[in-house]
């Protein structure tokens, strides 16, 4: 019993240092910009960079659009599969897991070949079209997480009974969808949204290969050309991820303590 506890402490201390030392090192490095003393110059430099602001707001815009369209695609599908097409469940679940199986770089490679300017659907022919394609590619990336969290939320409410109750009260399909189903799976939607946000903000491969000015490629560019800004950016990125996960925890805890009852 005693040795077991000592072993556990050693494991935890080792893990903690593996996780924390790089963060401390990064933070320390980000303060080194001014010679001979610590300063927040690197952060000042980052925040005053017009490209930082542009690429960051572009990625936030993208994240919001991805979340909206992702939710509009996933929630009705998950609902419909539970309600009317339970036999399609394995197929739909398999499809939603595909983005975990096929590497992002392969997927975007396919897009570039399939939707180039000389194809039938020339997404990449214009900047707007490429933006759309990028949004769809983000939706693809977040599909496994979004679907899983929404589907889990739907399992806790009995969608069949809820729908029948709404129908017997004379509700139309849009009313059922937006007044009954959505509010009840909100916790799942929110957790999916936060993960999507974290993924979209940091994603490098897709916007880089589609040549869009997103935050990921900007980070890479800065990393290749500057010395002290990259660690500052890493700290900022870590804070963003941390914020998303904190909100996620908050939402899941909230929905656990107050389960939505139909």
């Amino acid at each position: 019993m005693k040795t077991q506890k000592i072993g556990a402490w050693i494991a935890v201390l080792f893990g903690a240092s593996y996780f924390i030392v790089p963060l401390i090192a990064t933070f320390e490095f980000s303060l080194r910009m001014r010679r001979g003393e610590y300063s927040f110059d690197a952060y000042r430099s980052v925040f005053s960079d017009i490209q930082f602001r542009e690429s960051f707001s572009y990625s936030i815009m993208m994240a919001i659009l991805t979340i909206i369209f992702g939710v509009l695609l996933v929630v009705p599908t998950a609902y419909w599969v539970r309600l009317r097409l339970p036999q399609m469940r394995p197929v739909v679940e398999f499809i939603t897991l595909m983005p975990l199986v096929i590497p992002a770089i392969v997927i975007v490679f396919g897009y570039l070949r399939l939707y180039n300017s000389s194809s039938y659907i020339p997404f990449t022919g214009s900047a707007r079209g490429t933006d759309m394609l990028l949004m769809f590619s983000f939706m693809t990336l977040s599909l496994p997480y979004m679907y899983r969290s929404v589907d889990t939320a739907m399992r806790t409410i009995d969608v069949g009974t809820l729908t029948e109750a709404a129908q017997s009260l004379g509700a139309s399909w849009p009313t059922i969808m937006f007044k009954c189903i959505f509010p009840n799976v909100m916790s799942g939607v929110l957790s999916g949204a936060f993960i999507t946000f974290a993924i979209v903000i940091g994603e490098f491969t897709m916007p880089s290969l589609l040549n869009r000015p997103a935050f990921g490629p900007y980070l890479q560019l800065i990393g290749a050309n500057r010395a002290y800004e990259p660690p500052a950016l890493a700290i900022i990125a870590f804070a963003i991820t941390w914020g998303c996960m904190a909100l996620l925890q908050l939402v899941s805890r909230f929905s656990k303590s107050a389960p939505s009852k139909p």
Partner: peptide, 27 residues
């Protein structure tokens, strides 16, 4: 909680963090 964050902390920023830790002038 930390694992939830760190497992999503990949990509470019992670490279920066390790450069700042174990790079030639890393801490």
């Amino acid at each position: 909680t930390f694992s939830g964050v760190a497992s999503n902390f990949a990509g470019v920023p992670l490279a920066f963090a390790f450069l700042a830790t174990l790079g030639r002038t890393g801490l």
